[in-house]
Protein backbone atom coordinates (compact mmCIF):
# COMPACT_ATOMS: atom_id res chain seq x y z
CA UNK A 1 0.00 0.00 0.00
CA UNK A 2 1.44 3.32 -1.11
CA UNK A 3 1.61 6.29 1.21
CA UNK A 4 -1.53 8.41 1.05
CA UNK A 5 0.14 11.60 2.28
CA UNK A 6 3.68 12.73 1.41
CA UNK A 7 6.03 13.39 4.28
CA UNK A 8 5.76 17.16 3.88
CA UNK A 9 2.12 16.90 5.00
CA UNK A 10 3.37 16.59 8.54
CA UNK A 11 4.18 20.33 8.45
CA UNK A 12 0.83 21.26 6.99
CA UNK A 13 -1.13 21.94 10.22
CA UNK A 14 1.56 24.36 11.36
CA UNK A 15 1.69 26.04 7.97
CA UNK A 16 -2.08 26.47 7.95
CA UNK A 17 -1.93 28.02 11.42
CA UNK A 18 0.77 30.46 10.35
CA UNK A 19 -1.19 31.32 7.25
CA UNK A 20 -4.36 31.96 9.26
CA UNK A 21 -2.30 34.22 11.54
CA UNK A 22 -1.07 36.18 8.55
CA UNK A 23 -4.60 36.39 7.19
CA UNK A 24 -5.90 37.71 10.51
CA UNK A 25 -3.16 40.32 10.53
CA UNK A 26 -4.07 41.45 7.03
CA UNK A 27 -7.78 41.58 7.93
CA UNK A 28 -7.05 43.68 11.04
CA UNK A 29 -4.83 46.04 9.12
CA UNK A 30 -7.45 46.34 6.38
CA UNK A 31 -10.27 47.00 8.84
CA UNK A 32 -8.35 49.68 10.76
CA UNK A 33 -7.44 51.36 7.54
CA UNK A 34 -10.72 51.05 5.67
CA UNK A 35 -13.53 50.74 8.20
CA UNK A 36 -12.96 53.99 10.09
CA UNK A 37 -14.34 57.44 9.26
CA UNK A 38 -10.85 58.46 8.18
CA UNK A 39 -11.48 56.38 5.07
CA UNK A 40 -15.27 56.21 4.83
CA UNK A 41 -15.94 59.95 5.17
CA UNK A 42 -12.84 61.97 4.44
CA UNK A 43 -12.97 63.12 0.84
CA UNK A 44 -16.77 63.01 0.52
CA UNK A 45 -17.62 65.85 -1.87
CA UNK A 46 -21.15 65.41 -3.21
CA UNK A 47 -22.31 67.11 -6.38
CA UNK A 48 -24.43 70.09 -5.30
CA UNK A 49 -27.48 71.37 -7.17
CA UNK A 50 -25.73 74.73 -7.67
CA UNK A 51 -21.96 74.69 -8.27
CA UNK A 52 -21.42 77.15 -5.43
CA UNK A 53 -17.74 77.91 -4.84
CA UNK A 54 -16.54 78.92 -1.39
CA UNK A 55 -13.17 79.88 -2.85
CA UNK A 56 -14.83 82.43 -5.13
CA UNK A 57 -17.15 83.93 -2.52
CA UNK A 58 -14.81 83.91 0.46
CA UNK A 59 -11.46 84.71 -1.12
CA UNK A 60 -12.42 86.72 -4.17
CA UNK A 61 -15.52 88.53 -2.88
CA UNK A 62 -14.23 88.50 0.70
CA UNK A 63 -17.44 87.45 2.46
CA UNK A 64 -17.33 86.39 6.10
CA UNK A 65 -18.64 82.89 6.91
CA UNK A 66 -21.34 84.49 9.02
CA UNK A 67 -22.80 86.41 6.08
CA UNK A 68 -24.27 83.12 4.92
CA UNK A 69 -23.95 80.78 7.92
CA UNK A 70 -25.51 83.47 10.06
CA UNK A 71 -26.56 81.35 13.02
CA UNK A 72 -23.21 79.66 13.56
CA UNK A 73 -22.21 81.93 16.45
CA UNK A 74 -25.70 82.10 17.93
CA UNK A 75 -27.11 78.59 17.92
CA UNK A 76 -26.10 74.97 17.97
CA UNK A 77 -27.01 74.55 14.35
CA UNK A 78 -25.02 76.22 11.60
CA UNK A 79 -27.53 77.06 8.91
CA UNK A 80 -27.09 76.60 5.21
CA UNK A 81 -28.15 79.97 3.75
CA UNK A 82 -31.59 80.77 2.43
CA UNK A 83 -32.10 81.53 -1.24
CA UNK A 84 -32.70 85.15 -0.30
CA UNK A 85 -29.13 85.34 0.98
CA UNK A 86 -27.88 84.53 -2.50
CA UNK A 87 -30.41 86.86 -4.10
CA UNK A 88 -29.10 89.78 -2.01
CA UNK A 89 -26.35 89.93 -4.59
CA UNK A 90 -27.52 87.72 -7.40
CA UNK A 91 -30.62 89.79 -8.13
CA UNK A 92 -28.11 92.21 -9.67
CA UNK A 93 -24.89 90.21 -10.15
CA UNK A 94 -25.29 87.56 -12.87
CA UNK A 95 -29.10 87.65 -12.55
CA UNK A 96 -29.63 85.35 -15.52
CA UNK A 97 -26.83 82.85 -14.96
CA UNK A 98 -28.15 79.34 -15.74
CA UNK A 99 -26.06 77.99 -12.86
CA UNK A 100 -28.23 79.95 -10.44
CA UNK A 101 -31.58 78.77 -11.80
CA UNK A 102 -32.38 76.52 -8.76
CA UNK A 103 -31.74 79.47 -6.41
CA UNK A 104 -34.02 81.78 -8.37
CA UNK A 105 -36.72 79.15 -8.49
CA UNK A 106 -36.45 78.62 -4.75
CA UNK A 107 -36.64 82.36 -4.12
CA UNK A 108 -39.72 82.80 -6.28
CA UNK A 109 -41.65 79.68 -5.30
CA UNK A 110 -40.52 79.48 -1.67
CA UNK A 111 -39.29 75.90 -2.08
CA UNK A 112 -35.96 74.67 -0.61
CA UNK A 113 -32.79 74.42 -2.69
CA UNK A 114 -31.91 70.71 -2.45
CA UNK A 115 -28.37 71.14 -1.05
CA UNK A 116 -26.70 67.84 -0.21
CA UNK A 117 -25.69 67.41 3.43
CA UNK A 118 -21.92 66.85 3.72
CA UNK A 119 -21.13 66.74 7.44
CA UNK A 120 -23.59 64.91 9.62
CA UNK A 121 -23.26 63.62 13.15
CA UNK A 122 -25.49 60.65 13.96
CA UNK A 123 -28.64 61.43 15.93
CA UNK A 124 -27.28 59.81 19.10
CA UNK A 125 -24.48 62.37 19.42
CA UNK A 126 -25.03 66.00 20.38
CA UNK A 127 -23.06 68.75 18.73
CA UNK A 128 -23.22 72.51 19.16
CA UNK A 129 -21.56 75.06 16.90
CA UNK A 130 -21.94 78.22 18.96
CA UNK A 131 -20.11 76.88 21.99
CA UNK A 132 -17.09 75.90 19.90
CA UNK A 133 -16.99 79.02 17.76
CA UNK A 134 -17.43 81.40 20.70
CA UNK A 135 -14.77 79.62 22.75
CA UNK A 136 -11.92 79.84 20.28
CA UNK A 137 -12.36 76.82 17.98
CA UNK A 138 -12.17 77.85 14.34
CA UNK A 139 -14.14 76.26 11.51
CA UNK A 140 -10.88 75.07 9.99
CA UNK A 141 -10.30 72.60 12.85
CA UNK A 142 -13.35 70.57 11.86
CA UNK A 143 -14.06 71.51 8.26
CA UNK A 144 -10.62 72.13 6.80
CA UNK A 145 -9.81 74.99 4.48
CA UNK A 146 -13.32 75.60 3.20
CA UNK A 147 -12.20 79.00 1.94
CA UNK A 148 -10.05 77.27 -0.69
CA UNK A 149 -12.64 74.72 -1.83
CA UNK A 150 -14.65 74.92 -5.01
CA UNK A 151 -16.81 72.04 -3.82
CA UNK A 152 -17.12 71.44 -0.08
CA UNK A 153 -15.38 68.20 0.87
CA UNK A 154 -15.29 66.34 4.17
CA UNK A 155 -11.66 66.78 5.30
CA UNK A 156 -11.75 65.65 8.95
CA UNK A 157 -13.09 62.30 10.18
CA UNK A 158 -15.43 63.93 12.78
CA UNK A 159 -15.39 60.59 14.57
CA UNK A 160 -15.66 60.27 18.33
CA UNK A 161 -11.90 59.85 18.62
CA UNK A 162 -11.43 63.09 16.72
CA UNK A 163 -13.73 65.02 19.06
CA UNK A 164 -12.21 63.55 22.22
CA UNK A 165 -8.66 64.20 21.10
CA UNK A 166 -9.29 67.92 21.18
CA UNK A 167 -11.49 67.83 24.26
CA UNK A 168 -8.64 66.24 26.21
CA UNK A 169 -6.14 68.82 25.12
CA UNK A 170 -7.77 71.94 23.66
CA UNK A 171 -4.83 74.28 24.24
CA UNK A 172 -3.04 73.13 21.10
CA UNK A 173 -6.05 73.93 18.91
CA UNK A 174 -7.52 77.18 20.25
CA UNK A 175 -7.37 80.44 18.34
CA UNK A 176 -7.49 84.10 19.15
CA UNK A 177 -11.23 84.98 19.17
CA UNK A 178 -10.68 87.50 16.36
CA UNK A 179 -9.14 84.82 14.11
CA UNK A 180 -11.97 82.26 14.32
CA UNK A 181 -13.49 83.14 10.95
CA UNK A 182 -10.15 83.72 9.24
CA UNK A 183 -9.33 80.20 8.11
CA UNK A 184 -5.81 81.14 7.05
CA UNK A 185 -4.84 82.21 10.55
CA UNK A 186 -2.70 80.08 12.84
CA UNK A 187 -3.80 78.79 16.21
CA UNK A 188 -2.22 80.21 19.34
CA UNK A 189 0.13 77.26 19.86
CA UNK A 190 1.51 77.53 16.32
CA UNK A 191 2.03 81.24 16.82
CA UNK A 192 4.20 80.33 19.79
CA UNK A 193 1.56 81.64 22.19
CA UNK A 194 0.73 78.38 23.97
CA UNK A 195 1.06 80.28 27.25
CA UNK A 196 -1.76 82.63 26.18
CA UNK A 197 -3.89 79.63 25.26
CA UNK A 198 -3.41 78.10 28.70
CA UNK A 199 -4.24 81.42 30.34
CA UNK A 200 -7.34 81.75 28.18
CA UNK A 201 -8.47 78.24 29.12
CA UNK A 202 -7.95 79.04 32.78
CA UNK A 203 -9.53 82.50 32.80
CA UNK A 204 -12.53 81.56 30.70
CA UNK A 205 -12.93 78.15 32.35
CA UNK A 206 -12.89 76.29 29.06
CA UNK A 207 -13.87 72.75 30.05
CA UNK A 208 -14.87 70.59 27.10
CA UNK A 209 -16.86 67.52 28.21
CA UNK A 210 -15.01 64.20 28.29
CA UNK A 211 -17.70 62.14 29.97
CA UNK A 212 -20.11 60.19 27.83
CA UNK A 213 -23.14 62.21 28.88
CA UNK A 214 -21.56 65.42 27.58
CA UNK A 215 -22.10 64.34 24.00
CA UNK A 216 -24.53 61.42 24.29
CA UNK A 217 -27.22 63.26 26.16
Amino acid sequence: MSKLFPKSANKLPLQILIYLGVLAGIATAGATYYLTPKYTRVGYAPVQPVPFSHAQHVQEVGLDCRYCHSSVDKSGHSNVPTAQTCMNCHNVIKPTSPLLAPVRESFEKNTPVPWVWVHRTPDFAYFNHAIHVNRGVSCVECHGKVNEMDTVAHTQPLSMAFCIECHRNPEMRLRDPKDIFNLDSKNLADQGRAEDARKYIHDWKVMPPQSCSGCHR
Binding site: T36, P37, R41, G43, Y44, A45, P46, A153, H154
Partner: peptide
Protein backbone atom coordinates in the same frame (compact mmCIF):
# COMPACT_ATOMS: atom_id res chain seq x y z
CA UNK B 1 -10.09 48.98 -5.77
CA UNK B 2 -10.57 50.71 -2.41
CA UNK B 3 -7.82 53.26 -2.92
CA UNK B 4 -6.13 55.39 -0.30
CA UNK B 5 -7.62 57.44 2.51
CA UNK B 6 -8.70 60.93 1.62
CA UNK B 7 -9.46 60.40 -2.06
CA UNK B 8 -12.34 62.58 -3.24
CA UNK B 9 -15.58 60.77 -4.02
CA UNK B 10 -19.18 61.82 -4.63
CA UNK B 11 -21.32 58.81 -3.69
CA UNK B 12 -22.69 58.82 -0.10
CA UNK B 13 -20.18 57.52 2.46
CA UNK B 14 -20.29 53.87 3.46
CA UNK B 15 -21.91 53.05 6.81
CA UNK B 16 -19.72 50.84 9.00
Amino acid sequence: IFGLRGTTFTRPPMDV
